[in-house]
């Protein structure tokens, strides 16, 4: 302790006693173990409970395989759509001034406060057989509800805020000085965005995209309402998990679930990496 005497306050003066400290840490770790680590471990343990061969069979089952492809396909369509929205909304909000900006930002957050089942329901009311456009859609033989388009729209709805709400505060904090300089020097809009704005928001963009991706692959309630659960056609991975589980094929259900859990772990890993990058950048510019 002698070396500490010169500092303004001894560190221990504002700390709890070691006894309290270790009780709190132990309690916290106990909760993390019980509520987070144990459920995560269960997924993999149950998936592999009958051996690796059974696990592979479950994943290679044609219905499961088509669910995997459908889930990846939906994400591949949803992410570019919400990325375009996120970038345009963030550009309008952060680089320009207009009346009603705060209201506009609140509207972007709206899908987060609508429950997934209600989100699915609203599209049934619009596009369903008895909905606003139901008659017209049937007359033209276009299927939206209980088909891929409905699942895509429902997924777009629930993941809409992720990228925009990541980019807006980031781009607002960066201001418009660099873009103005580029414009005055003769860059056009695209050049300014591509060479000035995009490098600055790179990490925030990746962050938003991985969160959007995780939610779009994992969405259950909204997609369940509009999918119709047609095997091999409109079953995403989470829906396939539900069907297998309800049919008492627990091992197969957990096998598909383990793939989604791996996706979740990958998402967390990338998220931590991006957060570390951002804090590093902040320290450099601080």
């Amino acid at each position: 302790m002698s070396s500490n005497k010169l500092s303004t306050t001894p560190a221990h003066a504002v700390d709890e006693s070691p006894w309290v400290k270790w009780v709190l840490i132990t309690l916290a770790l106990f909760f993390v173990f019980l509520f987070l680590l144990l459920p995560l471990t269960t997924v993999f343990a149950e998936a592999l409970s009958k051996g690796f061969q059974v696990y592979l069979q479950a994943v290679e089952d044609p219905d499961s395989w088509s669910a995997i492809k459908l889930t990846l396909g939906i994400a591949a369509i949803v992410i570019p759509l919400n990325l375009t929205f996120g970038l345009t909304a963030a550009w309008a909000v952060s680089k320009h001034d207009f009346k009603g900006k705060a209201f506009f930002i609140t509207l972007i957050d709206l899908p987060f406060s609508v429950s997934p089942v209600v989100a699915g329901l609203i599209y049934v009311l619009v596009f369903g057989a008895n909905g606003w456009f139901g008659g017209w859609l049937i007359a033209h033989d276009i299927k939206i509800i209980f088909a891929l388009p409905g699942m895509i729209i429902a997924t777009v709805f629930v993941t809409l805020p992720f990228i925009a709400r990541e980019l807006i505060p980031l781009m607002q904090s960066q201001g418009t000085d660099e873009e103005q300089a580029a414009t005055v020097l003769g860059a056009n809009g695209w050049q300014t965005f591509w060479h000035v704005t995009l490098p600055n928001i790179k990490w925030g963009l990746i962050y938003g995209v991985i969160l959007c991706n995780a939610r779009s692959m994992g969405e259950f309630g909204a997609v369940a309402v509009v999918s119709g659960h047609i095997r091999g056609q409109t079953n995403t991975m989470p829906l396939q998990v539900e069907i297998l589980y309800n049919e008492y094929q627990a091992t197969a259900a957990f096998a598909i679930a383990s793939l989604l859990a791996l996706l979740a772990l990958l998402t967390l890993a990338i998220k931590s990496f991006v957060e570390w990058q951002q804090s590093r950048i902040k320290r450099i510019y601080a």
């Binding site: 995560l40 997924v43 692959m217 989470p238 627990a250 679930a257 979740a264 967390l268």
Partner: peptide, 11 residues
């Protein structure tokens, strides 16, 4: 946040 809700449910 990251784990799909159906997976959390069955786990």
């Amino acid at each position: 946040f990251a784990l799909p809700t159906a997976v959390a449910g069955i786990a």
